[in-house]
Structures are given as C-alpha cells and as structure tokens.
Simulated assay, not measured.
Amino acid sequence: MKKCSDFVLKMDESVTLAAANRAKALKAQGRDIIDLTLGQPDFPTPKKIGQAAIEAINNGQASFYTQAGGLPELKKAVQHYWTRFYAYEIQTNEILITAGAKFALYAYFMATVDPLDEVIIPAPYWVSYVDQVKMAGGNPVIVEAKQENNFKVTVEQLEKARTSKTKILLLNSPSNPTGMIYSKEELTAIGEWAVAHDLLILADDIYHRLVYNGAEFTAISSLSDEIRNRTTVINGVSKTFAMTGWRIGLAVGDPEIIAAMTKIASQTTSNPTAVAQYAAIEAFEENDKSFEKMHAAFEERLNKIYLQLSEVPGFELVKPNGAFYLFPKVTKAMAMKGYTDVTDFTTAILEEAGVALVTGAGFGSPENVRLSYATSLETLEAAVTRLKDWMND
C-alpha cells in the first residue's frame, strides 16, 4: 500500500531548511562550518518582549485558546502599527493573526485559489510560494526578473504572462532572496495594471522595515483605494523584531478574504500560540530601541560584505537595498571550478570550503546562490575569506 499522496511525493523540501540541516549535520560530525543559510536575525528577541510573555504566563493569560483570528488586543496593536508604517487606517475585520507569516500565505492561497487558477510569481522567489500555490490546486506562472534589471519584473513581462485564468499577482518587496525593492513608480504601474485586469494582489511585506542606505519601502496597498481593495498584505514579527521562533504572522486585506482565511485557520491551527500573541503586542508597541540597533548592524554588514564578496573570483553581485541577503550570480565561478549545476556547486562549497550557502535553484534562479548576512561581521568576513581561498585554489 502506498502510504503517501502523489502530491507530497513530488514536493521538494524547502531548500533553505535542507541546507541548514546539512550544515548542522556536518557541525555535529565535528566539521568547522560557517552557516549562512537561514534568514533569521542573529539578535535575541528584545527583553521587553520576552518579559511581556512571562507576565502573560504568570497571570494566567496564556493558558487558554484565543479567537481563531487572533487576540482583539493584538489586532488593536496591529491597527496602530499600520497607521504608523502604512499611513492608512484598517479595521479589525481586515486583520488576521496567524501561526507565522508562512501560514498566512498558505491560508491566503487556500482561501482564494480554485483548481487551475493561475498565480503570477516573479522569480527569483521565496522557496515556498510555488508549492503553496500547488497545494491549493493552482498553477504558478513564473516570470523571470533578470539580474540586469535589478531582479524586478516589468508590466510588459506581466502582461505577456497573463491569461484568462490569471487570478493573482504575488509581489515580495523587499525581496527574499535578492533584497531588491520596487520603487513607488514601478509599483504604481504594476498596481494599475492589476486593477485594469481585475486581478488580486498578494503583497509579502515581511521585510518592509529592513531597508538600507537611504532606500525607501513603498507599500503597494498604500497607493490608491482601488489597488488597496484588491491587495492582501502579509507581514509579521519574525524579521523586524527578531522573533522567528515565536511564529506570529498576520494578514491585512479585504474583509471577505480575511474571513475566509480565518475559517481556514479555525480548521487547522485553531489559533496562534497565546503566549506569543501577548509578546507580539509588546513588539508592535516598540517601547525600546532594539530595532534601530539591529537595523544599523545589518546596514554595516551589507556595506562591508558586499564589497568583499564582489572580490571573490567569478561572483557577480547587484547591491541590494533591503532584507538581509546577498544573491550573487555564480555562472563564471562555476565554470572556473568545472561545475554546470548550481546545487552541485553549492554542495562543493560546503564540503570543501566549509561555507553553507543556499542553492539558487530553489528560488527559481539556477545561476545564483544565496547567503544571509544575518550573522556577525566577523563570521561573514571569515566566510568570504574561505570563498576567495577556495576559488583561487
């Protein structure tokens, strides 16, 4: 008897988690591995946030189920946060709190996608988008964003990809894995195109405050009422507040879609973890300067490591202005070392140089590798030195 479904047998494991697990396994064997795989801040969760969780436990608030869509107090905190950083007001029926932003994405696709609906996804893309669309029975339509165009797609490319079955456009800005940001003008053109063709927009804004060197984040949902009414925004506390392990995400959008996503949550997760929700209330209130310190460190790392990585033979980079990743093109480097497959090349770097990167193949970009600079500058510089030495060997 076949125990697993055809679908899951065809599904790939997340390449970022697979790379991280391989690095951990080698470390457990005693190997000296520098791990640049995971996209999580190396800073601890701020103490005030942790204290809020402790207080919720001590006074018994964390002991019970909450509403499937999240605590009312947390939704109010999100409302205030939205006014500050998105510059428009939202109502509580436009908010869903989820067990991580990844689940918010999943709930969105399950709530909106019918079999054979098409979802346009620019590549490079975050590793889980494609499989999540497939889980919902939809068809992911990949539009390649060239490195020469700063990894951004144009309206012309989107129009070529659009068919009568197209329902959703997915945008991730700042981007994982590229760190690139769409300008207000670019987003306006894309948003107006979506309105003209009656498409929904899914905006993954999880890195919205991690922008550097004077760059500005523009929320596509803030551009006009027409664009906002068809846009669902995904966000959360993981990146901005160094809370990856707390698993609190959120979705903001049309009340009908949010209600449908809440129904999905009620039949799957029941509710996000109560204690994490109380911690998230404190996070959104931002009663200390932890974010500013973390942001300054990321900006310094980007500016220094970008220059150093650019000197690695065969590595070609576009300097990003958001998130915390570098995504160099390595076709020349592969040729220099005798490789034609980027995953094999990444494996060789791990085994021979002791540096764990993530293959670009999982992001829809078989010419690139991703590294996270969400680790110490000393560690990053040591990793670049190993890459230089390996390429020059």
Results as ranks from 00 to 15, higher is better:
385 T>H: 02
102 K>L: 13
306 Y>C: 08
149 N>M: 15
275 V>Y: 06
60 G>A: 03
301 R>E: 13
92 T>D: 14
102 K>R: 15
96 L>R: 03
369 V>Q: 08
219 A>C: 04
38 L>Y: 06
43 F>E: 10
230 R>S: 04
141 V>T: 08
108 Y>W: 14
94 E>H: 11
133 V>E: 05
316 E>P: 03
350 L>F: 15
341 D>A: 03
223 L>W: 03
252 V>M: 13
151 F>C: 12
321 N>Q: 14
170 L>H: 13
392 N>Y: 08
88 Y>N: 14
86 Y>T: 00
179 G>S: 01
305 I>P: 02
278 Y>D: 09
125 Y>T: 01
260 A>I: 00
215 A>I: 12
250 L>A: 05
160 K>P: 00
130 V>D: 09
16 T>M: 06
268 T>A: 04
143 V>C: 11
386 R>L: 02
343 T>C: 01
369 V>R: 01
276 A>L: 08
109 F>I: 08
337 K>L: 01
5 S>R: 12
315 F>Q: 04
9 L>N: 12
60 G>Y: 09
231 T>D: 14
389 D>K: 15
370 R>G: 02
114 D>H: 01
279 A>H: 01
3 K>W: 13
255 P>C: 00
392 N>S: 15
255 P>M: 12
374 A>N: 06
32 D>K: 13
22 R>N: 00
30 G>N: 09
306 Y>D: 11
156 E>H: 00
242 A>H: 10
297 A>D: 09
267 Q>P: 09
338 G>Q: 11
100 G>I: 10
225 D>P: 10
252 V>Q: 03
203 A>N: 04
200 L>V: 06
63 S>N: 04
84 R>S: 07
295 H>Y: 10
126 W>A: 07
69 G>Y: 06
351 E>R: 12
184 K>D: 12
60 G>N: 10
346 T>C: 12
306 Y>L: 01
126 W>L: 04
47 K>N: 10
26 L>N: 05
368 N>A: 11
373 Y>H: 06
324 F>Q: 03
47 K>S: 07
364 G>R: 00
38 L>R: 04
270 S>I: 15
46 P>V: 05
212 Y>R: 09
214 G>W: 05
358 V>Y: 06
352 E>I: 14
9 L>R: 00
324 F>N: 03
218 T>H: 03
123 A>G: 12
